[in-house]
Amino acid sequence: MPIKSAVQAVRTAVFYLVFLGQTVILAIIAGTIGILAGRTRLGWAVARYWCWSNVQFLRGLTGMGTHVEGEENIPPGGCIIASKHQSDWDIFAIFPHTGRPAYIAKKELMRIPFFGWAARSLDCIEVDRQKGAEAIPEMLAQAKAAIDRGCRIVIYPEGTRKAPLAPPEYRQGIVRLYSELNVPVVPVALNSGLYWGRNSLVIWPGVARARFLPPIEPGLAPDVFTERLKAAIEPESTRLSLEAIDAGYDRPMSPALQARVDAARQA
């Protein structure tokens, strides 16, 4: 392994130790608060600190910076925030800009002691992905209740983290939410996977960027909405990725990523 990569791997290991260590501690605190008092300002303060501190640790320990823009595109009141998902960074980078978010979270996370209790106290919505389409009615009921409490629903339309510039695979959950809740949808484009990829052992230096895009109005036909959503998120995410690479991408590029970059440039 080249010296530069080895040094970055050590920096990443230190970050993971700090990140996971404080996550456990804060989950115990927030989970206990959630069990004893339910949804409170103190629980939300713990969550906001977790997000803020992770951004600071990333920058200081790995050199991965954060830039989020377009917050003015989030309308007042209830809405759905539909974000590209490439990294764990997406969770705590978007959180501070969403008011009172209700994240769609997989059932497995909600079953973790303390962490799951904390998540429930922060309006998270549980979805059992193993049930497939059968899980959607329960998710919709929870989402409607969250909107009534003044939340904004945060969902990753592809359901899992994707590699940067990989072909999109949007699921039906976002379409059902859009159709049933009758609120605007704010697309979010980002390029975080360039620096912190799925199951990556190394987090690379650079500035991860996310951009809230103009909202999509409610009331469109499902197929029209889906195309509008893809047409907003995908080209802008590609643009953010290519701009970052052209500005000087300070990491080894795998053959798979290089192939996707070449294909994106040709397209």
Score class of each variant (00 low, 15 high):
A47H: 02
C51P: 03
S53L: 14
A6W: 13
I35Y: 01
T66H: 07
T23Y: 10
A45P: 12
G65Q: 06
L26I: 15
I28G: 03
V10S: 09
W44S: 13
G34C: 12
G60I: 07
R59K: 14
C51Y: 13
W50Q: 09
R59C: 09
L42S: 12
L26D: 02
A30Y: 00
A45G: 09
A37C: 13
R39Q: 08
G38L: 06
F15N: 02
S53F: 07
G60R: 14
A6P: 01
A13S: 07
Q56E: 15
A45Y: 00
Q22L: 12
G21C: 13
G38R: 04
V46Q: 02
R59W: 11
A37T: 09
R41N: 10
A9I: 03
L17F: 15
R39T: 12
I33D: 03
T32Y: 00
V55F: 14
V46Y: 00
Y16G: 00
V10L: 14
V24K: 14
R11C: 03
R41C: 02
T66V: 14
V18A: 08
F15S: 01
G34I: 09
L20D: 14
M64V: 07
A37L: 06
G21A: 08
V14Q: 11
T32A: 09
L36M: 08
S53E: 15
L36D: 02
L42W: 04
W52C: 07
G63Y: 06
L17K: 10
Q56A: 11
F57H: 15
V46R: 02
T40L: 01
G65W: 07
N54R: 01
A9Q: 10
I28Q: 02
G38P: 01
I28P: 02
F19T: 11
W44Q: 12
L42V: 08
R11A: 04
R39D: 09
L26G: 11
I35N: 08
L36H: 04
G65R: 05
I28V: 11
V7A: 11
Y49K: 09
I29N: 09
T66A: 14
L61E: 11
L42N: 02
T40P: 06
R41G: 07
A9V: 05
I33W: 02
V55P: 08
A30V: 14
G43K: 00
L58Y: 14
L20W: 10
L17Y: 10
I28E: 05
R59S: 14
G38I: 05
W52H: 12
G43S: 06
Q8F: 01
W44R: 13
F15W: 13
R39F: 05
R48V: 10
L58W: 15
W44V: 15
Q22S: 10
L61D: 04
V18R: 12
F57N: 04
Q22I: 06
G21I: 10
V46N: 04
G31N: 02
F15D: 10
A13N: 12
L17P: 00
